[in-house]
Protein backbone atom coordinates (compact mmCIF):
# COMPACT_ATOMS: atom_id res chain seq x y z
CA UNK A 1 0.00 0.00 0.00
CA UNK A 2 1.10 3.48 -0.65
CA UNK A 3 0.39 5.87 2.17
CA UNK A 4 0.91 9.56 1.64
CA UNK A 5 3.50 9.70 4.40
CA UNK A 6 5.59 6.98 2.75
CA UNK A 7 5.23 8.45 -0.72
CA UNK A 8 6.79 11.75 0.29
CA UNK A 9 10.27 10.23 0.22
CA UNK A 10 9.76 7.91 -2.73
CA UNK A 11 11.63 8.95 -5.88
CA UNK A 12 9.40 10.50 -8.61
CA UNK A 13 10.02 7.70 -11.14
CA UNK A 14 8.60 5.11 -8.67
CA UNK A 15 5.65 7.42 -7.92
CA UNK A 16 5.01 7.62 -11.67
CA UNK A 17 4.99 3.83 -11.95
CA UNK A 18 2.63 3.50 -8.97
CA UNK A 19 0.38 6.28 -10.27
CA UNK A 20 0.19 4.48 -13.65
CA UNK A 21 -0.91 1.37 -11.77
CA UNK A 22 -3.88 3.32 -10.35
CA UNK A 23 -2.77 4.58 -6.95
CA UNK A 24 -4.64 7.86 -6.42
CA UNK A 25 -2.67 8.82 -3.36
CA UNK A 26 0.56 8.40 -5.33
CA UNK A 27 -0.92 10.44 -8.19
CA UNK A 28 -1.75 13.26 -5.77
CA UNK A 29 1.68 13.00 -4.17
CA UNK A 30 3.35 13.09 -7.57
CA UNK A 31 1.41 16.21 -8.55
CA UNK A 32 2.23 17.80 -5.19
CA UNK A 33 5.91 16.85 -5.51
CA UNK A 34 6.05 18.40 -8.99
CA UNK A 35 4.27 21.54 -7.73
CA UNK A 36 6.75 21.90 -4.86
CA UNK A 37 9.72 21.33 -7.21
CA UNK A 38 8.33 23.94 -9.60
CA UNK A 39 7.79 26.51 -6.88
CA UNK A 40 11.28 25.76 -5.51
CA UNK A 41 12.74 26.41 -8.97
CA UNK A 42 10.80 29.65 -9.28
CA UNK A 43 11.99 30.72 -5.82
CA UNK A 44 15.57 29.79 -6.74
CA UNK A 45 15.37 31.70 -10.01
CA UNK A 46 13.93 34.73 -8.24
CA UNK A 47 16.70 34.52 -5.69
CA UNK A 48 19.34 34.33 -8.41
CA UNK A 49 17.75 37.22 -10.29
CA UNK A 50 17.53 39.28 -7.10
CA UNK A 51 21.21 38.57 -6.47
CA UNK A 52 21.95 39.79 -10.02
CA UNK A 53 19.97 42.97 -9.49
CA UNK A 54 21.69 43.95 -6.26
CA UNK A 55 25.25 43.26 -7.49
CA UNK A 56 27.64 46.19 -7.51
CA UNK A 57 30.64 44.67 -9.28
CA UNK A 58 32.49 43.66 -6.12
CA UNK A 59 36.13 42.88 -6.72
CA UNK A 60 37.83 39.67 -5.71
CA UNK A 61 41.51 39.09 -6.45
CA UNK A 62 42.99 35.59 -6.31
CA UNK A 63 46.61 34.55 -6.25
CA UNK A 64 47.35 31.59 -8.56
CA UNK A 65 50.64 31.01 -6.68
CA UNK A 66 52.37 30.53 -10.06
CA UNK A 67 50.30 27.46 -10.85
CA UNK A 68 48.34 27.07 -14.08
CA UNK A 69 45.08 27.17 -12.14
CA UNK A 70 42.71 30.00 -11.31
CA UNK A 71 41.30 31.01 -7.93
CA UNK A 72 43.95 29.14 -5.97
CA UNK A 73 44.05 31.46 -2.94
CA UNK A 74 41.96 34.55 -2.20
CA UNK A 75 44.23 37.58 -1.92
CA UNK A 76 41.89 40.56 -1.49
CA UNK A 77 38.15 41.20 -1.60
CA UNK A 78 36.06 44.35 -2.01
CA UNK A 79 36.53 46.79 0.83
CA UNK A 80 39.52 45.02 2.39
CA UNK A 81 42.75 46.83 3.19
CA UNK A 82 45.82 46.65 1.00
CA UNK A 83 47.73 43.39 1.16
CA UNK A 84 51.48 42.72 1.05
CA UNK A 85 51.38 41.59 -2.59
CA UNK A 86 51.67 44.71 -4.78
CA UNK A 87 50.37 42.85 -7.84
CA UNK A 88 47.15 41.87 -6.05
CA UNK A 89 46.71 45.53 -5.05
CA UNK A 90 47.26 46.71 -8.63
CA UNK A 91 44.70 44.26 -10.01
CA UNK A 92 42.27 45.42 -7.32
CA UNK A 93 42.86 49.15 -7.88
CA UNK A 94 42.90 49.05 -11.68
CA UNK A 95 39.81 46.85 -12.00
CA UNK A 96 38.07 49.30 -9.64
CA UNK A 97 39.15 52.24 -11.78
CA UNK A 98 37.80 50.57 -14.95
CA UNK A 99 34.56 49.53 -13.24
CA UNK A 100 34.02 53.09 -11.97
CA UNK A 101 34.76 54.62 -15.37
CA UNK A 102 32.01 52.57 -17.05
CA UNK A 103 29.61 53.16 -14.15
CA UNK A 104 30.14 56.92 -13.97
CA UNK A 105 30.34 57.53 -17.72
CA UNK A 106 27.72 55.15 -19.11
CA UNK A 107 25.82 54.05 -15.97
CA UNK A 108 26.94 50.49 -16.67
CA UNK A 109 26.77 48.41 -13.50
CA UNK A 110 29.88 46.19 -13.70
CA UNK A 111 30.61 44.21 -16.87
CA UNK A 112 27.17 42.73 -17.47
CA UNK A 113 25.08 45.71 -16.40
CA UNK A 114 23.81 43.61 -13.48
CA UNK A 115 26.67 44.10 -11.08
CA UNK A 116 28.48 40.81 -11.60
CA UNK A 117 31.55 40.36 -9.39
CA UNK A 118 34.86 41.29 -11.00
CA UNK A 119 37.25 38.41 -10.44
CA UNK A 120 40.95 38.79 -11.13
CA UNK A 121 43.66 36.14 -10.96
CA UNK A 122 47.29 37.23 -10.57
CA UNK A 123 50.59 35.29 -10.73
CA UNK A 124 49.18 32.75 -13.18
CA UNK A 125 51.72 30.18 -14.34
CA UNK A 126 55.47 30.60 -14.51
CA UNK A 127 56.92 33.62 -16.34
CA UNK A 128 53.63 33.59 -18.25
CA UNK A 129 53.55 36.24 -21.00
CA UNK A 130 49.84 36.88 -21.25
CA UNK A 131 46.59 38.17 -19.80
CA UNK A 132 43.17 36.87 -20.84
CA UNK A 133 39.43 37.00 -20.23
CA UNK A 134 37.75 33.58 -20.06
CA UNK A 135 34.06 34.40 -20.06
CA UNK A 136 33.86 34.86 -16.28
CA UNK A 137 37.12 36.25 -14.95
CA UNK A 138 40.45 37.81 -15.85
CA UNK A 139 43.83 36.16 -15.49
CA UNK A 140 47.26 37.81 -15.51
CA UNK A 141 50.74 36.35 -15.89
CA UNK A 142 53.84 37.87 -14.30
CA UNK A 143 55.72 38.01 -17.61
CA UNK A 144 59.20 36.59 -18.10
CA UNK A 145 60.88 39.95 -17.33
CA UNK A 146 62.83 39.58 -20.57
CA UNK A 147 60.19 40.45 -23.15
CA UNK A 148 57.27 41.32 -20.89
CA UNK A 149 56.73 42.31 -17.30
CA UNK A 150 53.75 41.97 -14.96
CA UNK A 151 50.57 42.20 -17.06
CA UNK A 152 48.41 43.28 -14.10
CA UNK A 153 50.51 46.43 -13.79
CA UNK A 154 49.22 47.98 -17.03
CA UNK A 155 46.02 50.00 -16.67
CA UNK A 156 45.47 49.58 -20.42
CA UNK A 157 45.89 45.79 -20.16
CA UNK A 158 43.35 45.63 -17.34
CA UNK A 159 40.92 47.89 -19.24
CA UNK A 160 41.41 45.86 -22.43
CA UNK A 161 40.58 42.56 -20.72
CA UNK A 162 37.62 43.93 -18.78
CA UNK A 163 36.22 45.42 -21.98
CA UNK A 164 36.25 41.90 -23.45
CA UNK A 165 33.86 41.06 -20.63
CA UNK A 166 31.63 44.01 -21.46
CA UNK A 167 31.65 43.12 -25.15
CA UNK A 168 30.53 39.60 -24.26
CA UNK A 169 27.43 41.02 -22.60
CA UNK A 170 26.73 43.77 -25.17
CA UNK A 171 27.55 43.13 -28.82
CA UNK A 172 28.94 39.63 -28.13
CA UNK A 173 31.05 39.87 -31.29
CA UNK A 174 32.30 36.43 -32.29
CA UNK A 175 36.04 35.95 -32.00
CA UNK A 176 37.17 35.45 -35.57
CA UNK A 177 37.59 37.44 -38.75
CA UNK A 178 36.14 40.96 -38.86
CA UNK A 179 33.74 40.56 -35.89
CA UNK A 180 36.74 39.30 -33.91
CA UNK A 181 38.88 42.24 -35.06
CA UNK A 182 36.06 44.56 -33.90
CA UNK A 183 36.01 42.72 -30.57
CA UNK A 184 39.73 43.45 -30.22
CA UNK A 185 39.19 46.99 -31.47
CA UNK A 186 36.66 47.84 -28.75
CA UNK A 187 39.02 46.50 -26.11
CA UNK A 188 41.86 48.67 -27.44
CA UNK A 189 39.55 51.69 -27.75
CA UNK A 190 38.47 51.60 -24.09
CA UNK A 191 41.99 50.66 -22.98
CA UNK A 192 43.17 53.87 -24.67
CA UNK A 193 40.39 56.07 -23.29
CA UNK A 194 40.75 54.75 -19.74
CA UNK A 195 44.53 54.98 -19.82
CA UNK A 196 44.33 58.65 -20.84
CA UNK A 197 41.77 59.35 -18.07
CA UNK A 198 43.91 57.49 -15.53
CA UNK A 199 47.00 59.47 -16.50
CA UNK A 200 44.97 62.70 -16.76
CA UNK A 201 46.32 63.18 -20.27
CA UNK A 202 45.03 65.31 -23.11
CA UNK A 203 44.79 63.63 -26.54
CA UNK A 204 47.68 65.78 -27.74
CA UNK A 205 50.04 64.54 -25.02
CA UNK A 206 48.97 60.88 -24.99
CA UNK A 207 51.22 58.31 -26.70
CA UNK A 208 48.30 56.23 -28.12
CA UNK A 209 50.20 53.05 -27.35
CA UNK A 210 48.82 49.82 -25.94
CA UNK A 211 50.99 47.83 -23.55
CA UNK A 212 53.94 50.23 -23.39
CA UNK A 213 54.23 49.69 -19.63
CA UNK A 214 54.35 45.89 -19.84
CA UNK A 215 57.14 45.49 -22.40
CA UNK A 216 60.50 44.66 -20.81
CA UNK A 217 64.05 45.56 -21.82
CA UNK A 218 64.52 42.59 -24.14
CA UNK A 219 61.44 43.37 -26.21
CA UNK A 220 62.22 44.82 -29.65
CA UNK A 221 59.77 47.70 -29.55
CA UNK A 222 58.14 50.43 -27.50
CA UNK A 223 54.73 48.79 -27.03
CA UNK A 224 52.44 46.01 -28.22
CA UNK A 225 50.22 48.09 -30.49
CA UNK A 226 49.81 51.67 -31.64
CA UNK A 227 46.40 53.25 -32.17
CA UNK A 228 47.79 56.22 -34.08
CA UNK A 229 50.27 54.31 -36.26
CA UNK A 230 49.33 50.61 -36.42
CA UNK A 231 52.23 48.43 -37.52
CA UNK A 232 54.93 50.54 -35.89
CA UNK A 233 54.87 49.52 -32.20
CA UNK A 234 57.48 46.78 -32.45
CA UNK A 235 59.45 44.56 -34.85
CA UNK A 236 56.65 41.96 -34.96
CA UNK A 237 53.82 44.47 -35.35
CA UNK A 238 51.96 43.44 -38.50
CA UNK A 239 48.84 45.54 -37.97
CA UNK A 240 47.63 47.25 -41.15
CA UNK A 241 46.41 50.84 -40.99
CA UNK A 242 44.32 50.60 -44.17
CA UNK A 243 42.03 48.06 -45.89
CA UNK A 244 44.57 47.89 -48.73
CA UNK A 245 46.80 45.86 -46.41
CA UNK A 246 44.04 43.75 -44.85
CA UNK A 247 45.35 40.41 -43.53
CA UNK A 248 43.61 37.45 -45.18
CA UNK A 249 45.43 34.54 -43.52
CA UNK A 250 44.03 32.14 -40.92
CA UNK A 251 46.44 32.80 -38.05
CA UNK A 252 45.24 34.49 -34.88
CA UNK A 253 41.60 33.50 -35.51
CA UNK A 254 41.83 35.07 -38.97
CA UNK A 255 43.69 38.11 -37.74
CA UNK A 256 41.71 39.41 -34.78
CA UNK A 257 44.76 41.14 -33.27
CA UNK A 258 46.02 42.13 -36.73
CA UNK A 259 43.12 43.70 -38.63
CA UNK A 260 41.95 45.57 -35.52
CA UNK A 261 44.64 48.07 -36.53
CA UNK A 262 42.31 49.38 -39.27
CA UNK A 263 39.37 50.51 -37.06
CA UNK A 264 41.90 51.46 -34.35
CA UNK A 265 43.41 54.05 -36.69
CA UNK A 266 39.89 55.30 -37.59
CA UNK A 267 39.21 55.77 -33.88
CA UNK A 268 42.41 57.76 -33.44
CA UNK A 269 41.54 60.01 -36.41
CA UNK A 270 38.01 60.53 -35.05
CA UNK A 271 39.40 61.53 -31.64
CA UNK A 272 41.67 64.04 -33.30
CA UNK A 273 38.68 65.52 -35.12
CA UNK A 274 35.98 65.62 -32.41
CA UNK A 275 37.69 64.77 -29.12
CA UNK A 276 37.94 61.59 -27.09
CA UNK A 277 34.85 62.10 -24.88
CA UNK A 278 32.43 62.35 -27.80
CA UNK A 279 34.12 59.33 -29.36
CA UNK A 280 33.84 57.37 -26.09
CA UNK A 281 30.08 57.89 -26.00
CA UNK A 282 29.63 57.13 -29.70
CA UNK A 283 31.78 53.98 -29.55
CA UNK A 284 30.05 52.72 -26.39
CA UNK A 285 26.57 53.18 -27.87
CA UNK A 286 27.76 51.48 -31.05
CA UNK A 287 29.02 48.47 -29.12
CA UNK A 288 25.57 48.34 -27.53
CA UNK A 289 23.94 48.04 -30.94
CA UNK A 290 26.29 45.68 -32.75
CA UNK A 291 25.65 41.97 -33.08
CA UNK A 292 27.63 38.71 -33.11
CA UNK A 293 28.59 38.65 -36.80
CA UNK A 294 28.91 42.39 -37.47
CA UNK A 295 31.75 43.32 -39.83
CA UNK A 296 33.61 46.59 -40.54
CA UNK A 297 30.90 47.91 -42.86
CA UNK A 298 28.17 47.06 -40.35
CA UNK A 299 30.19 48.95 -37.77
CA UNK A 300 30.38 52.01 -40.04
CA UNK A 301 26.63 51.87 -40.71
CA UNK A 302 25.78 51.59 -37.01
CA UNK A 303 28.33 54.14 -35.81
CA UNK A 304 27.12 56.84 -38.22
CA UNK A 305 23.51 56.16 -37.18
CA UNK A 306 24.51 56.38 -33.50
CA UNK A 307 26.49 59.57 -34.10
CA UNK A 308 23.47 61.14 -35.82
CA UNK A 309 21.14 60.19 -32.98
CA UNK A 310 23.53 61.59 -30.38
CA UNK A 311 23.94 64.79 -32.43
CA UNK A 312 20.16 65.23 -32.53
CA UNK A 313 20.04 64.80 -28.76
CA UNK A 314 22.80 67.38 -28.41
CA UNK A 315 25.09 64.89 -26.67
CA UNK A 316 27.98 65.12 -29.14
CA UNK A 317 29.27 67.89 -31.39
CA UNK A 318 27.44 68.56 -34.67
CA UNK A 319 30.36 67.47 -36.85
CA UNK A 320 30.57 63.97 -35.35
CA UNK A 321 28.93 62.01 -38.18
CA UNK A 322 31.03 63.59 -40.91
CA UNK A 323 34.21 63.30 -38.88
CA UNK A 324 33.61 59.59 -38.35
CA UNK A 325 32.71 58.96 -41.99
CA UNK A 326 35.87 60.76 -43.02
CA UNK A 327 38.05 58.82 -40.54
CA UNK A 328 36.71 55.46 -41.68
CA UNK A 329 37.11 56.50 -45.29
CA UNK A 330 40.76 57.37 -44.64
CA UNK A 331 41.40 53.76 -43.58
CA UNK A 332 39.49 52.38 -46.55
CA UNK A 333 36.18 51.51 -44.88
CA UNK A 334 33.41 53.11 -46.87
CA UNK A 335 29.66 52.97 -46.62
CA UNK A 336 28.38 51.36 -49.85
CA UNK A 337 25.27 53.54 -49.68
CA UNK A 338 27.28 56.78 -49.80
Amino acid sequence: MCHKFQCSIVPPYILEQLAKQGSNSCKRTLIETQRIAKSRNIALNNLLQRTDEVGTGNRIVYDCLNEYRQKVKKARSEGEDKVADATANLAYDYSGYVRNYFKETFQLNSLDGKGMPIISNVHYGKAYNNAFWDGDEITYGDGDDVQFSNFAAGIDVVAHELTHGITQFLGNLEYKGQPGALNEHFSDVFATIIKQKFLAQDISEANWLIGDTVVAEGFPGKAIRSMSAPGTANEFDSQPDHMDNYYTGSSDNYGVHINSGIPNRAFYLSCMAIGIDDCALIWFQTLNQLWRTADFRDMLEVITKVANELMEEGKVCDTADNAILESFSMVGINNPAV
Binding site: N129, N130, F148, E184, G211, I224, S251, D252, V256
Partner: peptide, 10 residues
Protein backbone atom coordinates in the same frame (compact mmCIF):
# COMPACT_ATOMS: atom_id res chain seq x y z
CA UNK B 1 51.77 29.48 -29.84
CA UNK B 2 49.29 31.96 -31.29
CA UNK B 3 46.92 34.59 -29.98
CA UNK B 4 47.27 36.09 -26.53
CA UNK B 5 46.93 39.74 -25.56
CA UNK B 6 50.09 40.57 -27.49
CA UNK B 7 48.96 38.74 -30.63
CA UNK B 8 52.61 37.92 -31.33
CA UNK B 9 53.02 34.30 -32.52
CA UNK B 10 55.91 32.20 -31.24
Amino acid sequence: IEGGFTGIPK
